[in-house]
Design a protein around this nucleic acid. Sequence first.
DNA 1: CTGAAAGCGCTTACAG
DNA 2: CTGAAAGCGCTTACAG
Lengths: 339, 339
Amino acid sequence: MAQKIKLSTIAESLGVSTATVSLALRDSPLVAAATREKIKEQSRALGYIYNRRAASLRTSRSGIIGVVVHDIQNPFYAEILKAIESELDRSSHTFILSNHYDSVDKQRNFIETLLQLGGDGVIMSPAIGTPREDLELAENNGMPAILVARSVENLDLPTYRGDDSYGISLATNHLIGLGHRTIAMVGGTDQTSTGRDRYQGYVNALKKANIPVDPALRIAGPRSKQGGFEAAVHFLSLPQKPTAAVCWNDLVAIGFMNGIARAGLMPGRDISVTGYDDLEEAAIATPGLTTVWNGQSEVGRLAARALLDKLSGSHEPDGMHLIKPEMRIRQSTAPLHRT
Amino acid sequence: MAQKIKLSTIAESLGVSTATVSLALRDSPLVAAATREKIKEQSRALGYIYNRRAASLRTSRSGIIGVVVHDIQNPFYAEILKAIESELDRSSHTFILSNHYDSVDKQRNFIETLLQLGGDGVIMSPAIGTPREDLELAENNGMPAILVARSVENLDLPTYRGDDSYGISLATNHLIGLGHRTIAMVGGTDQTSTGRDRYQGYVNALKKANIPVDPALRIAGPRSKQGGFEAAVHFLSLPQKPTAAVCWNDLVAIGFMNGIARAGLMPGRDISVTGYDDLEEAAIATPGLTTVWNGQSEVGRLAARALLDKLSGSHEPDGMHLIKPEMRIRQSTAPLHRT
DNA sequence: CTGAAAGCGCTTACAG
DNA sequence: CTGAAAGCGCTTACAG
């Protein structure tokens, strides 16, 4: 590794001041075009690497945006991230990613690290049990936060997510329309807003159709493929013999269908199954999964835009921005056939 | 946002020097225990946030490690990342993540950004066509690189990946042992080392068993579930009527099995299918996927360790470190039954 | 055990 | 259109 090249190296080699070099490299019109070209040329020739820490120390803007979600390995979050990434990419921001795995400590640790690095802002899907102080820590230190997918109670931050209650009612109504009356709800937990809202939407839809709500038909807990897979055993042992399952999300639904298939039944014929999210793989599951599009790409795109707008000084309205979900009908649901 | 708290704020409020505060906060034994406690107490009380940019400007170490892979949404990379993350977490390093989607430009852009931020090192699964200059850019600027999952030709960097040729021969031999003779290879591309090595391993295994190698039985290209799904149509139309498929990875295999099922055939009975990687979901696929464990968690863990060791000054040997793959037999493969 | 001072590599008024 | 100088917030010899 050769001698470190810095602004002053370029300046000296060209007999100009560092101020001129700094301005030239950032395309300032204050520098004569000829000088600017000469400087850029030299910078390239010397293999100059811009030192962002030094610049950011001076300007107190780092170009770093933090993103923290439950688990990036979860395709639901991965799809949101992809949208955030492509939005940030075109604005020359760098993003730092972290999982919190619903650990409030890990999440706070990330926020602190981000503050230490001088992060400009943070996009997060808050961990279960996030105290408002942790988010205020960011805001109070000049690092605005935008929430995605989940809300935090009593905190009026800009939040982007799908309308869960409405969305799950679409799925439930679809099954009711097919003649199903004994419909289980599989997965989700009351500890998250999505868990509560989706269960509530399911309950509302049943009530509206005058179908009695049986709490024993709720198999709460599962939130992964593995969880859905295991829940199938529980489902098949229910004395009420449900003919359909509204799953909390696509992962649960796909695992659940696999579980049903392992037991020798055919999802989409013997048992109707709906998912939620419309992940890319919902379409190529066997059978194709009937599900609810939850707008991950919209959520990510809008959240990133909202943050960038905020950073450039425009005052976005705080509060909830709900994406309207849409039904996607495939082969995993079918009219009830009585045997 | 109140007045910015910095080292000197704490120092003044306590009537000590910034040097003492700096040392105390980093638990230096040079500072008397009582002073140290008083300083830490005050730092907490004032809500002091350590400015890493300033520190890193001074020390020229940032605590930042970059990780760039093809696509973090791909569970294969996600599993590697998880292992890297848990290894780095315990060493108080922050990691910055990026996808390159096999774009050499995007990858170089990331390396440059990382250099600007003063990254201490980088772990990467290089994009297809990565020129050695891009990796030398990192190394020459004092940022060591470790490769995972893929190699770059003519470049002797520490590399951690599975022994692809050996691993795929395990899968191929397993099928041969079950009586299959017309075995297709589905997916993968000659543009990556994994694509070349796995095809070669398949060819070698066939040759060793005196089975003629038919190039038409290679369906090259697919690398995703979607790709595997679509390849099933091609596979079923082959005049040679293969009875088994060695898939390039689990994603292809799972998509492929779905495609087979859509056509009314039953994978694991009508057609035997093997995967590669042993992703978490291989076990819960229907049928359970026979596959080859590729040691993602080991790859991630060892690569992270190697980088940390290098950063702390120990001179690790460069070159290839191959993880030995292992067979995982499940229900997607069965003895050939002649009809 | 503690303090005064220099310096990391930028950017930004300010002056010319 | 260009330059001299201060300062962002730390850490690290050095001195005492």
